[in-house]
Design a protein around this nucleic acid. Structure first.
Lengths: 219, 219
DNA sequence: ATCAAAAATCGAACAGCGTTCATTATGTCG
DNA sequence: CGACATAATGAACGCTGTTCGATTTTTGAT
């Protein structure tokens, strides 16, 4: 079994090498300007070899897409678990904005770019039968690879359980909170907030994060 | 003088024809899939002719960019002027979301796509000397070609003057309002809200619009 | 009307792209 | 060792945005 294992391991290492080179080029040069030939050159292989490991350029992007989402997930949960549940939503909001502003190219790939057809793999909190399992009892995908959205929603629910008065229902509150932070960083990354001096913008964003709660809670 | 005028008019008509064909293709096929050859074919000219009227493909996009911004501007001001100043912000927010959801490809070009280098031509409300006119009293760029952002800000200022208590300063309030509506439509157009049933999503958006005010005002 | 000058149009051509594929090389097993 | 699967190659295909000399059309003055 060892030889097949090694083969598979080498294959994954090659995939990771391609992904690493691609990520570097995507981040520094942008997605459209990153050519398959450039990726191949970076890992010192022929262009055709790329296609032994990925179906096409889009699939490379998809792989990075999921990888970056995992990073965001970890960043949010790390920031969230570091504070008690009452402050959690604010901490998550701040971590979200920090992640986006410190990794704008990652955020670009994840949320801003048009991925045509791509399985978003977002938490399907399908309102009704969400955790329809009953037997096994662990359908929530280990709650680890469940999305950032889900975690934000859990934080809001915790705040409500702690006694805060929600303005809207849970989903609407989550949507508003997410829209607010996404809207700010999306406008910022696209350069629509360039008219503000950086420090003033920082202050506004700071207020915005603190304001997430006041947007969705009555008190 | 008439012949030079006609030449110029014909030139503008040709430009408009190209823009119209390009807009149609951009909207139906998307920007990357729209080729110069396809645009040329649509207006029944040779590909090279396009370059007599536009420097490159990007400049066609820029022209449409400004054109769509004018459309949004008009839509917002029409909706805003139709109601008294106290309800204006909500009316603008609703018109903004309606515009984006009814013209998602326009919104894509305006706010979602990465335009690399592009003079955003956004209202330079440079925080300080904004409407420094005093004498004439109409330095606000005829208030017509001034941006949608500016108009939203004016609506908020009107609400404040009507006695509403702002949570933050004017710029921050405007940023929050804009981020909220942009965030919602951006997430929606990118397909991140597909897990919600359409009618439930509509309700949430409805709440969100009504909630703009409660986000930035204390009362 | 005539005719040079100017402007507009054309379409072939160029370099680059993502992708494919027959060929070559490499490594694995009977 | 020899048969075989697998990986790597790089030329080639069809496409792209763009350029440019050749061609046609339009202009302005005689």
């Amino acid at each position: 079994m060892s030889i097949a294992d090694r083969k598979e391991r080498e294959r994954q290492e090659m995939r990771q090498g391609i992904l690493q080179a691609a990520a570097h080029l995507f981040v520094t040069e942008g997605f459209p300007k990153t050519t398959i030939r450039a990726i191949a050159s970076e890992i010192e292989y022929s262009p055709g070899t790329i296609y032994t490991y990925f179906k096409d350029k889009q699939e490379i992007l998809n792989a990075l897409f999921h990888q970056f989402f995992d990073e965001l997930n970890i960043a949010l949960r790390t920031a969230g678990e570091a504070v008690e549940s009452t402050n959690r939503l604010t901490a998550i909001g701040r971590a979200y904005i920090d992640f986006a502003l410190q990794n704008p190219e990652h955020y670009e790939l994840m949320f801003l770019m048009n991925h045509e057809r791509l399985d978003k793999k977002l938490p399907d909190l399908s309102t009704e039968v969400d955790c329809r399992d009953a037997d096994t009892g662990k359908k929530i995908e280990s709650a680890q690879d469940s999305g950032s959205f889900q975690y934000m929603q859990e934080a809001i629910q915790l705040a409500i359980q702690s006694g805060r008065q929600p303005r809207y229902d849970l989903h609407t509150s989550t949507l508003l909170a997410w829209s607010l932070v996404h809207g700010i960083v999306a406008l910022h990354i696209r350069g629509f907030l360039e008219m503000y001096p950086p420090d003033y913008l920082q202050t506004m964003i700071h207020h915005a994060v603190d304001g997430i709660s006041s947007s969705i809670f009555l008190d």
